[in-house]
Each structure stands twice: as structure tokens, then as C-alpha cells.
């Protein structure tokens, strides 16, 4: 993983205002227990929940040659969205699903989400998503994971980095060309 690259971009995205603790949090990210910086006050999650949400968001959109979910602030966005845009019953469903997820990852891997190596966590999530989707008594877990993925993707692809680097963003195209040979495989941001 190209951490330094990502860090540089993150610094750009956030206008260069990165605290020392944030930087060390990102740099230590690959070591034993993951921990994610908080940029402000949480509205919906507890601090522990925020850490778990972050480590999953990091697997939904990892940093590659472009920034990932963490650098663009997806976990805080998920926190805000759940607080502002979801009714109480869905908020409860989400938290319930998250709790079930946490106890299952513990019992199945013998380790919590934050302590798992990222490839192990990714493999677990991949299987887990398929498993809960095919079961019909796992509505809360399904809701939790689907919502987290949707919000992470929404937050990411509409972020400045996501829209302009991962995708291609042209605010004022000025013209319409109906059929063109594709020069770049990246999709338009809007």
C-alpha cells in the first residue's frame, strides 16, 4: 500500500491541516491494531463503533493509487448520515446489525475487526456479505452492511478526491458528444 502517496493526497484534500496524531494514526495503520483519527465530534457512533466502521470502510474503498475512504473522511460522513437521514427504527437496525457482526467476527476469527490483518478482514467481509445475503433471517446484518457500503461509496465518489481523481469530473462540459472512442476507462463522476 502506498501510504505516503495517500498521505500526501490527504494533506492536499484537507488543505494541509493535518495534526501530528492524525499523521501517526495513518502511518501506523498497517501495524498490529488499527486506529482511526476522529476529525470532530461523533453524532451517532460511540468511539469504538467509529473505529469498527472505519476499518470496514477502509476495506470497501482502500487507498490505492488514489485516496481511499479514510482519507476522504467517509467514516465521519457515515456517522453524520446515520444521525441526520435515518429514522430511529433504521438506526436501531443498523446498530443491531453492527453488534451481531462484531460478535460473529470475534467468534469466527478469534479476533476483533480492528486487530485482523487487512487481507483477513477483507476475506471475512467478502464471505460474510454473501452469507447474510442468502439467509433470510439476517435482515439487520444485511441492512447494516448494505447501508455502510452505500454510504461509504456515496461519500467517496462524491468527495473531491473520489470525483476528480478516482473518477473524471467535468463541472461544465460545454458540449455534448454522443459517441466517442473511449480514451480513459474511468467513468464520469456525474
Amino acid at each position: 500500500m502506498i501510504r505516503r502517496e495517500a498521505l500526501k493526497k490527504m494533506t492536499l484534500a484537507m488543505g494541509g491541516a493535518l495534526s501530528a496524531t492524525t499523521i501517526s494514526a495513518v502511518l501506523t495503520h498497517c501495524s498490529s491494531k488499527n486506529s482511526f483519527p476522529l476529525s470532530g465530534e461523533l453524532k451517532f457512533f460511540t468511539e469504538d463503533q467509529f473505529q469498527v466502521i472505519s476499518v470496514i470502510a477502509d476495506r470497501i474503498v482502500p487507498a490505492t493509487d488514489t485516496a481511499g475512504a479514510i482519507e476522504v473522511g467517509c467514516p465521519a460522513f457515515v456517522d453524520l448520515m446515520l444521525f441526520d437521514c435515518y429514522e430511529k427504527d433504521n438506526q436501531d437496525k443498523f446498530i443491531n446489525g453492527l453488534n451481531v457482526f462484531q460478535s460473529e467476527i470475534d467468534s469466527e476469527t478469534g479476533s476483533d475487526a480492528l486487530s485482523l490483518k487487512s487481507d483477513k478482514l477483507e476475506a471475512f467481509l467478502t464471505d460474510y456479505e454473501i452469507k447474510i445475503d442468502s439467509a433470510d433471517n439476517r435482515k439487520d446484518e444485511e441492512f447494516f452492511l448494505r447501508t455502510l457500503k452505500e454510504l461509504t461509496l456515496l461519500g467517496y465518489f462524491t468527495s473531491k478526491e473520489g470525483a476528480t481523481m478516482a473518477l473524471r469530473y467535468v463541472p461544465v462540459p460545454g458540449k455534448y458528444e454522443a459517441c466517442k472512442e473511449m480514451e480513459d476507462e474511468r467513468a464520469w463522476a456525474l
Binding site: 476495506r59 470497501i60 490505492t64 488514489t66 456479505e129 473518477l167 474511468r186
Partner: peptide, 13 residues
């Protein structure tokens, strides 16, 4: 469905 770098790559395309 999916996670990780391949998933991200697919969604950007």
C-alpha cells in the same frame, strides 16, 4: 458485492 482494491477499481470504471 465485493470489497477491496478490485472492487474499488471496478466501481471507478
Amino acid at each position: 458485492k465485493g470489497f477491496g482494491a478490485d472492487f474499488k477499481d471496478k466501481l471507478t470504471k
